[in-house]
Amino acid sequence: MAAAAAAGAGPEMVRGQVFDVGPRYTNLSYIGEGAYGMVCSAYDNVNKVRVAIKKISPFEHQTYCQRTLREIKILLRFRHENIIGINDIIRAPTIEQMKDVYIVQDLMETDLYKLLKTQHLSNDHICYFLYQILRGLKYIHSANVLHRDLKPSNLLLNTTCDLKICDFGLARVADPDHDHTGFLTEYVATRWYRAPEIMLNSKGYTKSIDIWSVGCILAEMLSNRPIFPGKHYLDQLNHILGILGSPSQEDLNCIINLKARNYLLSLPHKNKVPWNRLFPNADSKALDLLDKMLTFNPHKRIEVEQALAHPYLEQYYDPSDEPIAEAPFKFDMELDDLPKEKLKELIFEETARFQPGYRS
């Protein structure tokens, strides 16, 4: 834990890192770190609560700039109880001085990944967590956004079992017609939660990839272990087919990539493993919904509104309290091709509203 900075004593240090967030945020305490930044909790002297502050230093890398800009653009436009918001952003007053960006968010005690390492969940908890994931996802999908990296560590939890989806750095506007060349190379989302079509096709992607990830998360809540822990690309596919069985001819016809289709045709026939054999203690309604989410063919996979209306979630289902976005989200430009200098300018502009004396 960093010592509390005395008023006016300059930035606090946390594990050798400068955290320049005073005077409003003090009493910093280390939480963890990701690929390009550290997260601390801090005391907000204005709202009198502890908050989470993520320090991001992305400006050396085009990919990190892209992810940072995506996350900020999306989260500043989203407003939903099951999606983490941005409360404040701290950065230098000029673009030349801006080396880091500090993002202030609600402090959540833990995440689903940490929880599943230590606790076996009751059916009631599984049901409530799944409902909140789908409630947040309904809003995301209504904005025409794909999260693309749903996994237990991106689901934040607090002691009252509130759940918030975080990390929109890989999110995209849904565009089933656009052929994202190089899709697989830039697709760094965790393999275990990846839909089979991501490994088999490169053309376009749809909201059904997020539903697949939610199915993987439900299976993990039922058993405290990942359902498809593939060691590499082909191993991942083999794990999936080992449980779902061989795809039907109709399902194979959806695979545009001939090499991928021929690979699947070359494999020995596998039978589907019954879900109640894998999860003998699970609620039968939970397994019915799991089956509809972990469907090989993305066109037959359940959609988020149908999933919310499934009998497993009937005690929570309330369409009048499951809000959607006001308007579909649009990125003005494809960020993939922009140089990091341009992305830095866009991050600077996007964060201006939090600067003292800002006038829109």
Rank of each mutant, 00 (worst) to 15 (best):
A2I: 00
A4E: 01
A5W: 03
A6C: 03
M13K: 15
M13S: 04
Q17A: 11
V18C: 04
V21K: 00
R24Y: 03
T26F: 12
N27M: 03
L28S: 04
Y30P: 01
I31H: 11
G32P: 07
Y36A: 14
Y36H: 15
G37W: 14
G37H: 06
V39Q: 03
V39Y: 07
V39A: 00
S41T: 13
S41P: 07
S41A: 12
N45M: 05
V46Q: 12
V46P: 11
N47L: 14
A52N: 00
I53M: 12
I53L: 11
K54Q: 13
K54H: 00
K55T: 02
K55C: 12
I56R: 14
I56S: 15
S57W: 08
S57G: 14
S57M: 15
P58S: 15
F59Q: 10
F59K: 14
F59C: 15
E60C: 06
H61S: 06
Q62L: 15
C65G: 00
L69N: 01
L69G: 09
K73M: 10
K73C: 05
K73A: 10
I74D: 04
L75A: 02
L76N: 06
E81L: 08
I83C: 01
I84V: 06
I84T: 00
I84R: 15
G85T: 05
G85F: 12
G85H: 09
N87G: 01
D88Y: 15
I90M: 00
A92T: 13
A92Y: 07
P93A: 07
T94K: 07
E96K: 13
Q97T: 10
Q97W: 05
V101K: 10
Y102A: 12
Y102P: 05
Q105R: 14
Q105I: 15
D106C: 01
D106G: 00
M108P: 01
D111Y: 14
D111E: 13
L112R: 00
L116I: 06
K117M: 14
T118V: 06
Q119T: 05
Q119N: 09
S122H: 06
D124V: 14
D124C: 09
I126N: 13
F129Y: 14
F129E: 07
F129K: 08
L130H: 00
Q132M: 04
Q132T: 10
L134Y: 09
L134S: 10
R135C: 13
G136I: 08
K138C: 07
K138H: 00
Y139E: 08
I140W: 06
H141F: 03
H141Q: 11
H141T: 08
H141L: 15
S142F: 11
S142V: 06
N144G: 01
N144V: 07
N144H: 04
V145D: 03
V145P: 03
H147F: 10
H147L: 14
D149G: 00
L150Q: 14
L150T: 03
K151W: 05
P152Q: 08
P152I: 06
S153N: 12
L155Y: 05
L156M: 12
L156S: 04
L157A: 09
L157V: 09
T159A: 10
T160S: 15
T160W: 04
C161F: 13
D162M: 00
D162G: 00
L163V: 07
I165L: 07
C166R: 12
C166Q: 02
A171W: 03
A171K: 05
V173K: 04
A174L: 05
D177Q: 09
D177K: 05
H178A: 01
H180N: 15
G182E: 13
G182N: 04
G182T: 12
F183K: 09
L184Q: 14
L184I: 06
T185M: 07
T185V: 05
E186A: 09
Y187N: 14
Y187Q: 06
Y187W: 04
V188Q: 05
T190L: 09
T190I: 11
T190H: 03
R191C: 07
R191H: 06
W192D: 02
Y193V: 13
P196V: 07
P196S: 12
E197Q: 08
E197P: 09
I198N: 14
L200Y: 11
S202M: 09
S202Q: 08
G204K: 04
G204R: 13
S208D: 05
D210A: 13
D210Y: 14
I211P: 06
W212Q: 04
S213K: 02
S213G: 01
L218H: 10
A219I: 06
M221R: 12
M221C: 10
M221F: 04
L222N: 04
S223F: 11
S223G: 11
N224D: 00
R225Q: 03
R225N: 08
R225F: 07
F228V: 02
H232P: 04
Q236V: 08
L237M: 13
L237G: 11
L237D: 05
N238A: 07
N238Q: 04
H239C: 09
L241P: 04
G242C: 15
L244I: 08
L244C: 02
G245L: 09
S248Q: 04
Q249S: 01
E250Q: 02
L252Q: 14
N253D: 00
C254F: 13
C254S: 15
I255Y: 08
I256S: 09
N257C: 08
N257Q: 04
K259I: 12
A260T: 12
N262P: 07
Y263G: 03
Y263C: 00
L264S: 03
L264E: 00
L264N: 00
L264W: 01
L267G: 00
H269N: 15
H269L: 15
N271V: 10
K272N: 14
V273M: 12
V273C: 03
P274G: 08
W275V: 05
N276F: 06
N276H: 03
P280Q: 12
D283S: 05
S284R: 08
S284M: 06
K285C: 04
D288E: 15
L289S: 12
K292P: 02
L294S: 07
T295R: 05
T295V: 04
T295N: 14
F296P: 02
N297P: 07
H299C: 00
H299S: 05
H299N: 14
R301A: 04
E303F: 04
E303C: 08
E305N: 08
Q306H: 15
A309N: 01
H310C: 05
L313C: 01
Y317P: 00
D318S: 04
D318W: 05
P319A: 01
P319D: 08
S320I: 09
S320G: 04
S320Y: 13
D321F: 08
D321P: 02
E322Y: 02
I324Q: 06
A325P: 06
A325H: 00
A327G: 00
P328S: 12
K330D: 00
F331P: 06
F331S: 00
D332F: 08
D336M: 04
D337S: 07
L338N: 05
L338Q: 15
L338T: 02
L338P: 00
K340Q: 01
K340R: 13
E341M: 09
K342A: 01
L343Q: 15
E345Y: 10
L346H: 05
I347P: 05
I347F: 15
F348V: 12
E350F: 04
T351V: 01
A352V: 12
A352F: 03
A352K: 08
R353T: 02
Q355D: 04
P356R: 10
P356N: 00
P356Y: 01
P356G: 06
G357A: 12
Y358P: 04
Y358A: 05
Y358K: 11
R359N: 00
